[in-house]
């Protein structure tokens, strides 16, 4: 029997193969975890999306170049969202005739509750459900409210992970209007 076919050689070859496979698996696992924890976009190009609005129309982010865009993720069951709802509408009313667009994205909610919420808080800017939570995944949101401020060139300039006051929001919008 040649040395290459001895049981010891076969065992060591199997061990090496198993070891390589385990290493490969750990590598893939690590890569996946790193990708998953890449985090939300806080600067650079804003992920594009098309939103079907509750009123029947659609809105696409990439069509809004040249405008400052405020993207707000919210849900009717979210108390902090309620806290900022009137402030968002107030700022929208203040800037809607300038180069500013507000987009409300209803995340993980039921349509009837979402519609009732919009009515209750008198929200008039474009709003729609995040169907399949695809937009939320693109922006890697972990909860609501989360607001992204996008400049006229389509870059994310701020990601705010808490409810905002009207003054705070104006503080983000004003400098971008002058650019």
């Amino acid at each position: 029997m040649s040395a290459q076919n001895t049981p010891q050689t076969r065992t060591s070859r199997t061990t090496i193969i198993i070891f390589v496979l385990v290493l490969l698996f750990i590598g893939l696992l690590a890569a996946g975890l790193l990708m998953r924890h890449k985090g939300r976009p806080e600067k650079g190009p804003a992920p594009d999306f098309t939103l079907q609005l509750f009123d029947g129309g659609t809105i696409r982010l990439s069509d809004l170049r040249g405008k400052v865009v405020v993207v707000n993720f919210w849900a009717s069951w979210c108390q902090p969202c309620k806290d900022e709802a009137r402030d968002l509408e107030e700022v929208w009313q203040k800037y809607k005739d300038r180069d500013v667009v507000f987009i409300g994205i209803n995340w993980s909610d039921t349509e009837s509750k979402a519609r009732a919420y919009l009515k209750a808080y008198g929200i008039t800017y474009p709003n729609g459900p995040d169907l399949g939570r695809r937009i939320g995944q693109k922006y890697r949101i972990r909860g609501v409210p989360e607001t992204f401020i996008i400049d006229k060139q389509g870059n994310v300039r701020a990601a705010i992970i808490r409810p905002m006051s009207a003054d705070e929001l104006i503080g983000y919008i004003e400098p971008l209007l002058g650019e």
């Binding site: 993980s108 039921t110 459900p129 169907l131 399949g132 939570r133 695809r134 995944q137």
Partner: peptide, 8 residues
Amino acid sequence: FVAQYGPI
């Protein structure tokens, strides 16, 4: 519900 929230 899959259409609303995804396969999760």
